[in-house]
Design a protein around this nucleic acid. Structure first.
Lengths: 232, 232
DNA sequence: CGAGGTTGTCGTACAGTGTTCGAGTGACTA
DNA sequence: TAGTCACTCGAACACTGTACGACAACCTCG
């Protein structure tokens, strides 16, 4: 059992004022949320901490490991209600919405989380509580894995798509008009009327509400399908 | 309407033997599939084409644009059956499986597709055909968007998770034993029995079959939920 | 035939990246 | 007081994407 990122000695007395891993993780999270993955470099991060560029490497083995820590930190923010508080159905609903909100707070997550498995303690805790929740619906063993996986895959996929669409608006200069213009440029070359209208719906009107409606629609569909397999 | 990556003049006579965008896209796709996103650099790609490092920039504006082209190329491989061939239900099923297979062939997709919206012609065509398919179930307007979005979000999320898990096996040196070891190292620190067993199921036995079963389980759930809303 | 324009290639260079190495500093301990 | 640990950091290496400008091959027009 080799030493991993997650295991750390409880750290002795701080002696003098010094850089800490917690500090690094915190400001890295801030820059990541604000500037995206491309905006995070070890040098810039160190500068933001008034430290030398390579000082970070004493606290964190590598940038990839730092990102692992950040991902796990994000998972730690997700609410997974205790089963039995209000029934499994509303519990899963709350969990799903919390997960989506987490992705929206940390829109860099979809970009990085599909390049590695999440095995940090917070990810494990989330899975553990998720299984407990889905277990309250009567799912056990493989079925519990699959049922929970269905919900999470959908939420992550849906939120990822939402993030991708929002990213476009950022690049287009924060103005919905330009976003719409870009979409129209494409859709005008599409012969299909149904598709053209669909694309148009995606940039006209209440976009925020549309994202939400789309998300809850799929969530309802899945909960509907799941309850056919649930035993209580 | 500014000129975009997707619009290109029909190219005149080739005159002399020269680099083409198609050629670049093709070998870029090969390296991407084989070595992943991190393995693709403009210099290495040019070398593989026996070209100078910066020659590519005459055919492609930027690396990001090249990746846009590659993403759209991948979407072009996805089968979306005509509605009415065998009913919408089996059509959606076939589409979903084709989409998953596409992600497996191009495991770099999840890593990049959440950083930008897919607006290439092939993406549009896929959406268009998808809407036609879901329309055969009686969905129209916003409902059609949402129903199709539910299926696609789930498939992309599920396949992304599968890719992430497989990636771990690669890093662990292609040996399932090491993969299992890594998981056990983590899970042994988890107090919850249910979670420990769940994680163990994920690395023991027929992993390939488990991925497949998990995917089809969720797909069934969604089709079940959708057919409650379908009108035919 | 020769001049000019278009199409395409590519060497050089710049600013940036993650990371290694080894020297250095401060504080605690024997 | 000497030694050891915990920690910082400047310099350097091997990369990266890309702008620029010089060059060459071909086509077209006079």
């Amino acid at each position: 059992m080799t030493e991993s990122i997650w295991t750390r000695k409880p750290k002795a007395a701080p002696a003098r004022e010094t850089l800490t891993r917690e500090q690094i993780v915190r400001t890295a999270m801030e820059t990541l949320d604000a500037d995206g993955l491309a905006g995070l470099s070890m040098r810039k991060l160190a500068a933001k901490l008034d430290a030398g560029a390579t000082s970070l490497y004493w606290h964190v083995p590598t940038k990839d490991d730092l990102i692992d820590l950040l991902i796990d930190e994000a998972w730690g923010e997700i609410d997974v209600p205790d089963p039995g508080l209000a029934g499994w159905r509303s519990g899963v609903l709350l969990f799903a919405h919390s997960l989506r909100a987490g992705i929206m707070r940390h829109p860099w997550l979809p970009e990085v989380m599909y390049t590695r498995p999440s095995m940090g303690p917070q990810a494990m805790a989330m899975g553990s509580r998720g299984l407990a929740l889905i277990g309250a619906a009567g799912f056990t063993g493989r079925d519990a894995d699959f049922a929970l996986g269905t919900v999470m895959s959908y939420v992550l996929g849906s939120a990822g798509g939402e993030v991708a669409t929002r990213q476009m608006a950022r690049k287009a200069g924060q103005f919905v008009e330009q976003l719409a213009g870009a979409v129209f440029e494409q859709t005008n070359q599409i012969a299909d009327d149904t598709m053209r209208e669909s694309a148009r719906r995606r940039v006209e009107g209440d976009i925020e509400g549309m994202f939400y409606d789309s998300f809850t629609y799929g969530l309802e569909v899945i909960l509907e399908g799941l309850s056919r397999n649930a035993t209580e």
